[in-house]
């Protein structure tokens, strides 16, 4: 069984969780699936390490924890080396892109993906930015270079939303999609509904519990939901949307009174990303308390209206390092199967 040589571009929560799985469960992956990942390059925002014989992951994780960078990997560490340089220089089979999401120009993720595919590398991407901005172009580039581009981890984290819709619903026509795609917003709205907490308090708690970032704008303004909606719609319905085509309204102007009024009518307010008839939008919407979409806390839920089977709803955890890392494993398995040698 040959090694699957991997470059990790971005060494945040997701990539580190993935590295931990490879480090601790590598043998099991090989035994169960014939998957032998070998990390030959790691790049973060400060520098990069390259070793064609494989990087010592324990050391890499330790260095990141102690120093905040990869400088502990002496001998193979290059300070200031960028992700794009590593992709160009190191020989590998797959590039795993997990740098932070950025949606105005989607950089540096977009450059990482373009460079990787140009070099004929398969790509696993958990970074939503490039796909939200340029999905049709990236898929075209993957076809042109005859490589596989997988991005399961961008929507639903460990919950296999994209492949579920594309593979398991085959034969039914998906007519519209509605989803609760952001755990932070759903946590806040749940607290507002159940405990009459104010937006401010609920957000503060979400930050304290590590659900929300220090700068929560991206979540509460609906941008994260919009990214996931674009990716899901393009993947499942074949639309050619970009995040710039979407009407986005977040939850910042929702008050406890709004939620109470909805509750009095047997409904609650959720931040919904929806697409129907080629039109996509993100906005707070009322959902019946009895509807399967009414999930609480940080859970995500996505409802596919299919013909003739009717509504199918998938519920699961939407984010988290270890969860998203399993999606990377899933994607790698698919690449391994497609290119078994």
């Amino acid at each position: 069984m040959p090694d699957l040589r991997i470059i990790l571009v971005g060494f945040g929560v997701v990539a580190r969780s993935f590295a931990e799985i490879v480090e601790s469960d590598g043998e099991s992956l090989a035994r169960r699936y014939g998957l032998k990942p070998k990390i030959v390059g790691i790049a973060d925002s400060r520098g990069a390490a390259i070793a064609q014989t494989g990087i010592d992951l324990k050391k890499a994780l330790g260095s990141k924890k102690d120093n905040g960078d990869l400088s502990g990997l002496d001998g193979i560490y290059h300070e200031g080396m960028t992700g794009a340089q590593v992709i160009k220089e190191a020989d590998c089979d797959v590039v795993v892109e997990s740098t932070p999401t950025e949606i105005t120009a989607a950089e540096p993720g977009l450059t990482h993906l373009k460079t990787a595919m140009m070099k004929g590398r398969h790509v696993v991407c958990t970074n939503k930015g490039p796909l939200a901005l340029a999905m049709p172009a990236l898929i075209e580039l993957a076809h042109h270079n005859e490589v596989v581009l997988k991005f399961s981890g961008t929507v639903g984290g460990g919950t296999p939303v994209l492949d579920f819709a594309k593979k398991c619903l085959e034969g039914s026509e998906v007519r519209s999609i509605k989803g609760i795609l952001n755990g932070t917003c759903n946590y806040i709205l749940t607290r507002m509904a159940n405990e009459s907490a104010t937006m401010k308090d609920a957000l503060a708690d979400a930050q304290r519990l590590g659900y929300a970032e220090a700068d929560p704008t991206y979540d509460v303004e609906g941008l994260d939901t919009a990214c996931k909606l674009v990716i899901t719609s393009n993947h499942v319905l074949g639309t050619g949307l970009s995040i710039k085509d979407i009407d986005i309204r977040g939850i910042t102007d929702i008050s406890v009174e709004d939620v109470k009024e909805a509750l009095s009518q047997g409904e609650t307010i959720k931040l919904i990303g929806g697409v129907a008839g080629g039109k996509a939008k993100v906005s707070p919407e009322r959902v019946k308390l009895t509807h399967p979409l009414n999930v609480s806390g940080t859970f995500n839920a996505i409802c596919f209206d299919t013909f003739p089977s009717g509504e199918v709803t998938l519920v699961g955890k939407g984010a988290g390092g270890p969860e998203t890392a399993t999606s990377v494993i899933r994607d790698l398995l698919e690449i391994r199967r497609a290119y078994a040698r």
């Binding site: 901005l133 340029a134 049709p136 172009a137 990236l138 898929i139 075209e140 580039l141 042109h144 050619g240």
Partner: peptide, 9 residues
């Protein structure tokens, strides 16, 4: 031309 990438760029 790779039209999708072209229009984007």
């Amino acid at each position: 031309p790779l039209m999708n990438m072209t229009t984007l760029q």
